[in-house]
Amino acid sequence: MDNFQEFISEMDDKIGKIIEKPRRLFFDAENENILEVAEHLFKKMGCRLSTATAQETYKGIEVLYHFSEDKTGSYYCPRIVMKDKSNPKMNSISSVVKGAEWIEREMMEMLGITFDGHPHPEPLLTGNHPKEIKTPWRFNTNVQLRGSNNG
């Protein structure tokens, strides 16, 4: 059985809107609280960071972390929405979770997010790219689809 009720009552003041499904908990968190939430999940509850998803929506740039609690087979997913689309910034959790380094680098280069406190903010997949691709997942990106690019 999952421990969602216990988690919600412990972190009540640090989390926002909640969507609860069997074994899945999606909740909103603010940028100021994300390090505390990550520390509670990783160190106190012993969860493992699986990965993180980033997306541009009409509300802003959204980053969704996925923490897995292996004992119960459930997932805790804090969601941070950055409303400033021209310069999205948030705190990096790689000081708490070493395994977050690579995925934050990928989100930086694909969407242009700045993670404050990240030790190696170089591009992971499109570094040294001959066509200088920038932020391909944004709505206003400079990449063109295959038909119009020249080989």
């Binding site: 691709i133 990449v143 295959r146 119009s148 690019n149 020249n150 080989g151």
Partner: peptide, 18 residues
């Protein structure tokens, strides 16, 4: 023929030129 990757941003358009 590029298989199913023809819609990607990172693929060369004309492989024979490479």
């Amino acid at each position: 023929s590029g298989c199913c990757f023809n819609d990607s941003y990172n693929i060369t358009a004309n492989r024979e030129e490479v």
